[in-house]
Amino acid sequence: MTSTLPSDLTTLAVDVAGHIATVTLTGTGHGNAMGSAFWHELPLVFNALDADEDVRAVVLTGAGRNFSVGLDLNDLLASWGEHVRPDAGATARAELLADIRGKQAAITSVATCRKPVIAAVSGWCVGGGVDLIAAADVRLAGRDAKFSVREVKVAIVADLGSLQRLEGIIEQGRLRELALTGKDIAADEAERIGLVNSAHDAVLDAARAMAEEIAANPPAAVYGTKRTLTAEREARIASELREVATWNAAFLPSDDLLEAITAFSEKRKPHYRGH
């Protein structure tokens, strides 16, 4: 490689063969959950791949049975602590805002990487996992894949890009249905509504074949094409991400969020009161 990847990655594995880089989520917990180290490592990896002139396309996938079950809630709750209590003060809310903006920037590093990114999704792809694949250029699914924009079910407005980037990938009505219900959908429905381009028996092989097809094209033309397709969209998204981060820093601390946290720890269904 002509750029340097971190040598001590714990949540991502990177393999480069020819002109194709495969980035595999290994997570910090069950189901490739996204903990603190993941949010630190993701932009380091994609910035390095962006700068590597030998890499012409990236395949993004998950280790094991799942792509990602989303944010590591135990890790997240430990790091948020007092920041999400209903009586959180201005300093705590400002720190929460900075944390959200940092996670948004990590996902954006995938969207703005000059090299086309193909997501190969098997098993569960939930919450932050959907944020991540929404930042990819192309999404392919295994037959067993299941997707959920689930944040609303835990008293959170999805704030890492799925609400912004899925607009234009799927139609507005479908996006609202997924985001407002938090429902799960299978690979066939994801293909039908356009969330994924296609479903495959061997999704990683399909993604690598597409990456090879892209890598065979002139690199400057590929980069120019991606930049042209991405520039206006990402400018709009940047503004919308700032708005949702500000909203969550102000309104995320709530009795309903505490109830979601308590219900999660007690393994029961939450009871929301709108407080």
Rank of each mutant, 00 (worst) to 15 (best):
L5P: 15
L5E: 11
L5S: 02
S7C: 06
S7W: 01
L9T: 03
L12E: 01
L12P: 08
V14K: 12
D15M: 06
I20D: 03
T22V: 08
V23I: 09
L25S: 02
L25R: 07
T26R: 11
T28A: 00
G35A: 08
F38P: 00
W39H: 11
H40C: 05
P43V: 11
L44I: 05
L44R: 12
D52G: 01
D52I: 06
D52Y: 04
D54M: 14
V55W: 15
R56M: 06
G62K: 00
G62H: 01
R65N: 14
S68T: 14
V69F: 11
G70W: 14
L71R: 02
D75T: 03
A90T: 15
A90S: 13
R93L: 04
A98C: 03
D99R: 13
D99E: 12
D99S: 13
K103V: 00
K103L: 00
A105R: 15
T108R: 11
S109C: 08
A111S: 12
C113M: 10
K115D: 03
K115I: 04
I118L: 07
W124G: 09
C125D: 04
V130H: 03
L132H: 12
A134F: 01
A134E: 00
A135R: 02
A136R: 02
A136H: 10
A141K: 12
A141I: 09
D144Q: 07
V149D: 11
V149Y: 06
K153E: 07
K153C: 10
A155W: 06
V157W: 15
V157M: 13
A158C: 07
S162E: 09
L163D: 14
Q164D: 09
L166M: 14
G168H: 07
G168D: 08
I169M: 15
I170V: 14
E171M: 07
R176V: 10
K183I: 09
K183V: 11
E189N: 07
E191Y: 06
E191S: 11
R192H: 06
R192K: 14
I193V: 05
A199F: 02
A202Y: 02
D205L: 09
A211F: 03
E212L: 14
I214N: 14
I214A: 12
A216K: 11
P218E: 04
A221I: 07
T228W: 05
L229G: 13
A231Q: 13
E240F: 03
L241H: 03
L241F: 01
R242M: 13
V244H: 03
A245H: 01
W247R: 14
W247S: 12
N248E: 05
A249G: 05
A250T: 10
A250D: 10
D256H: 03
L257Y: 06
E259N: 05
S265H: 14
K267V: 05
H271M: 13
H271C: 12
G274D: 07
G274S: 05
